[in-house]
Each structure stands twice: as C-alpha cells, then as structure tokens.
C-alpha cells in the first residue's frame, strides 16, 4: 500500500508525463480525473477543456462515462459548473439538490442529481491569463469539500495546466521548425534540380527554373517536390513537353 505522499507524487508525475508522441488531450484529461478521484475523496471527477483552446472542439473526460456525457452536453447548453467556473475564473462548490441549483442550471442540476450526485465543485484550469476549462468534482455526500481538498485539487489542475501549456508550446515549435527546415530544403532542392536540367538540356539557370516551374504548374505539384523527383531521376521534364 503506497503512502499518501507516494500517491501524491505519482499523480504529479503522471500529469507531467506528456512528452511521448502519443499525447492527446482526451487521454491527458482522463489521467487528471483518475488522479483527482484517487486523491480527493470524491465520487467522480471530470476534466473539461472548452472549445477555443488549440484547434479542437470541447474535450471532456470523466471517471464516470455518464458524467463525461453530461459535461459534454453541458458545454453545448452553456450551463453548469464548468461553464460558470470557466467564465468567472473562480472556484465554486454547491449542492445539486436544492432549487437554487435547478434555477442556476435547469438542465445540468437535475441531470447530475439523477446520476446520484449531491454536490459539485469546479476548479479553473488556467493557462496564463486565460481559463481553458475546469476540473469538476462530484460528490454523493452533503458536506462541502474541505479547503485542503480544494487546494490540492487546484494544485492538480495547475499541474495539468502546465503540462498542457508545455504541450502546446512543443506542438507550435514543432510546426514552426518543420516549416523553416522545409523552406530551406526546398531552396536547396530547386537549385540542384536547376543545375541538373541546365546541364542536361543546355539551358540557362533562368530557363531551367522556368521549366521546373511550368512542369510543377501543369502537374499541380509543389516545385520542391518536382525538384526532388528530378534529382532522384523519377521525372525528366524537357522543353518539348512542357507545353510552352
């Protein structure tokens, strides 16, 4: 049986471990909710990242599949603890049985209550200044979660946030680096292909470039891709067939 400290450490390590290629936000949120249920003594947890963060739509994961469904619906309805917490940026913790909750969330509150939950807390997932969603904690008791539990929940949410921030930076960086290297490589390939065509067909470098460009246009391909094919001997454009 691991000690509480060990369980805590394991949870933070699991949340920091986004560096493998298989990272996707849904799986990551599932890890967050799993850790939350284990550590916070709640019946169910849901992690929701609302549309607008990254290129994907709303992503919801929960320890209970029915809760995941409810949270995804709630995002559509634009109501519920995740929605309110996201808008205010502040944590909330309220009972689901009373009329106040039903007035506030006419669809979410009865839905959650029907699943057997009596209280809900929501903690913001904050990325720099922007809130991207929330960590929703559902309980079956009647007492509020303690301050310590909510603080620990916020720490989990913050750790998750850092991991998501890092993942977003990595993915942006990967895109930019690939674009730069692609552009630089294209220049090299085009010049090399120009030289080959110039030598083969006794053309000037400008004429060789025109030939490459016209071939790429008439075949609706990128000039660098045609250049690579010329270098590797897969295509042999010549003046007679270039349609000029």
């Amino acid at each position: 049986m691991p000690t509480p400290d060990q369980r805590l450490a394991d949870a933070f390590v699991a949340l920091a471990d986004t560096l493998d290629d298989s990272y996707d936000i849904a799986a990551f949120l599932a890890t967050l909710t799993e850790c939350s249920v284990k550590l916070l003594d709640v019946r169910a947890a849901a992690g929701v990242v609302l549309a607008g963060y990254g290129s994907q739509g709303t992503q919801a994961a929960a320890s209970d599949p029915l809760v995941a469904r409810l949270e995804a619906d709630a995002a559509q309805w634009q109501e519920g603890p995740c929605h309110d917490c996201h808008r205010s940026g502040a944590r909330l913790d309220i009972g689901l049985a009373g009329t106040a909750a039903r007035q506030r969330w006419p669809r979410y509150a009865p839905g959650a209550h029907a699943l057997g939950y009596t209280r809900v807390a929501a903690l913001p997932l904050r990325l720099r200044d922007e809130s991207v969603g929330s960590l929703v904690l559902l309980c079956t008791g009647t007492t509020s979660l303690t301050q310590d539990t909510l603080d620990l929940g916020q720490s989990l949410a913050d750790a998750a946030t850092i991991a998501m921030l890092r993942e977003r930076e990595l993915s942006e960086s990967r895109t930019l680096t690939t674009q730069l290297e692609g552009a630089l490589n294209s220049r090299v390939l085009v010049e090399q292909a120009k030289g080959m065509l110039a030598s083969r067909l006794a053309l000037s470098m400008n004429e060789a470039f025109d030939l490459l460009r016209d071939y790429a246009r008439s075949h609706q391909r990128k000039i660098a891709a045609v250049a690579l094919d010329v270098i590797e001997g897969r295509v042999r454009p010549d003046r007679a067939k270039s349609g000029r």
């Binding site: 730069l180 220049r187 090299v188 090399q192 292909a193 120009k194 030289g195 080959m196 110039a198 030598s199």
Partner: peptide
C-alpha cells in the same frame, strides 16, 4: 521562428544557390 519571423534576416541569409546549381550540373 516567431509570429512575425523573417528567416531571411533582411537578405543577409545566403542559401548558397550557386554551389547547389553546380552540384546539380556536376551530378549530371
């Protein structure tokens, strides 16, 4: 690499075009 990047450094970057043209010619 930034959002308003200029990977050509205002024309200072040299891609060695003539070297690659010559390599293409020579390979032929």
């Amino acid at each position: 690499l930034g959002p308003d990047a200029d990977a050509g450094l205002y024309g200072d970057v040299d891609h060695r075009p003539v070297v690659h043209q010559a390599a293409g010619m020579l390979s032929e």
